[in-house]
Design a protein around this nucleic acid. Structure first.
Lengths: 258, 258
DNA sequence: CGCCAGGTTGATTTCGCTCAAGCAATGTGG
DNA sequence: CCACATTGCTTGAGCGAAATCAACCTGGCG
């Protein structure tokens, strides 16, 4: 699986989420624009884009786009979080990627002008803007800067994935799962008064297992061992981590700096 | 490891290499241009590019660029083949990618305007053109089409890697190695009169092992078992494959169509 | 001749998968 | 309200693939 974040540091990078209420923005004035690939656009370009864009709310578990659908545009996340899945050779659904506000999804099949090879669904109540393909095409044709932005974004993903692949070869499932936990903590966790962290997992055990590239049973055992080692406690989807640093020590050798 | 080719079919895709003698081309008139990302450029643009481009021959094993070097341009392969390596967390060199004429390397660190995070070396006597960064920058700024080409190329690599990652989870080392063999056969192998194939491996056992994501000992055992099963015979770097289809059967379930 | 890099082989252990079975929470229909 | 599935997760036993550690070839080379 591919986490968009680099390696997560222990405490430093684990920040409580800001609580930003969304307005009825479309592109121009969108509060997540600064984080998005579109922030190179001019006012006019944004206006042009807005005219082909619709925002929509999704309930938890609802599908944003499905494998096999023809691509007719790209999706920019405004609020919430999405999970991107792919089907493997045996027909299992693999959770590939988690996506957060500011990220644009579906541009891969857009570039290929083909069908979606992944599915995306809301992990929590989310707002997603849908930008029609013809707008994106025109913008890309006219503005080299936007293409460069996309290019750099794709490039970044490429490196992320390449790292993920190399780590997959080197890390044990347990280490990989700890990494996944750290990244989830960054987005979905909150710090308690005593310095410990709590989190409501946005994913089922099965999905977590698929992210680690392990079977559900194996993940269950990994969780049991983590609890036995006093590193975390799990109760359903509720996680409590007393000492984030201790957990991070498990993988610090592989994520030195960040 | 990431093979740029899709899954290799058995006989169909295994073609003898044409024996093209290279002239003193620079960009305009370059015989591999059609395969390269640059083929969208106009005559003038090519001329502009040529003026900042130098071709250079490399001996086998010679380094084209090294990890940690500052990026000052990109490399377009004219003849031969390169291997791209990366260092993993333990300091081992992992062979990540094989590159062939028409491919452009080093554009990742170019886009990031940073240092190379990989090294590239010639696997055989090779000719590589070096295109200065300022030329590429100017071309990208002026021509959205070139950016799109790069984008599509990056996109393709992204999907290749993502597939490789997913396969890595599902395939055994043996199956993965068979896949590597098929791809190598496509570029470095030749068909004999009796329909069997021969190939001189461009890589050491250690490099092959790292491509599969296995230890050298494991690869050695895999090779022994392939020989015991009558699927291939290895003698040093010389490989003989009597029945390519039989070998392909090992992995056909995972590479159905192509 | 000794040395060394590249490669092979053997013994042992670890890890994670498969195949079951079991369990708790949640529906669902009568 | 009960009998019965269904879903999500956990636990156990056995097994196979590959890692690890270690010894040992083998050909080239000073």
């Amino acid at each position: 699986m591919f986490l968009q974040d680099g390696a997560s540091s222990a405490l430093a990078s684990v920040m409580a989420n800001g609580s930003s209420k969304p307005g009825p923005y479309i592109c121009a004035g969108c509060p997540v624009l600064c984080r998005a690939v579109w922030n190179a656009l001019s006012e006019e370009q944004l206006a042009f884009m807005s005219s082909g864009t619709k925002a929509r709310d999704f309930r938890r578990g609802e599908t944003v786009y499905a494998l096999g659908d023809a691509n007719k545009g790209v999706y920019c996340i405004s609020e919430g979080s999405l999970g991107v899945r792919k089907m493997d050779a045996e027909g299992n659904w693999i959770m590939l990627q988690l996506a957060y506000p500011g990220q644009t999804l579906g541009y891969r099949s857009f570039l290929r002008s083909g069908r979606h090879r992944t599915s995306a669904e809301a992990l929590e109540p989310s707002t997603v803007c849908y930008i029609k393909a013809d707008r994106v095409s025109k913008l890309l044709e006219r503005d080299p800067a936007l293409g460069l932005q996309f290019l750099q974004r794709a490039n970044h993903e490429l490196e992320t994935i390449q790292n993920a692949l190399m780590q997959n070869l080197a890390l044990t499932n347990r280490q990989f799962f700890v990494h996944v936990l750290m990244v989830l903590l960054k987005h979905h966790g909150s710090e308690n008064a005593d310095g410990s962290f709590s989190m409501q997992l946005p994913l089922s055990r099965g999905d977590l297992a698929s992210m680690v590239g392990a079977r559900q049973e194996t993940l269950s055992r990994i969780i049991k061992r983590l609890e036995a080692d006093g590193l975390a406690s799990f109760s359903g989807r509720q996680v409590h981590i007393a000492d984030v640093d201790a957990l991070f020590d498990e993988i610090s050798a592989y994520f030195p700096a960040l």
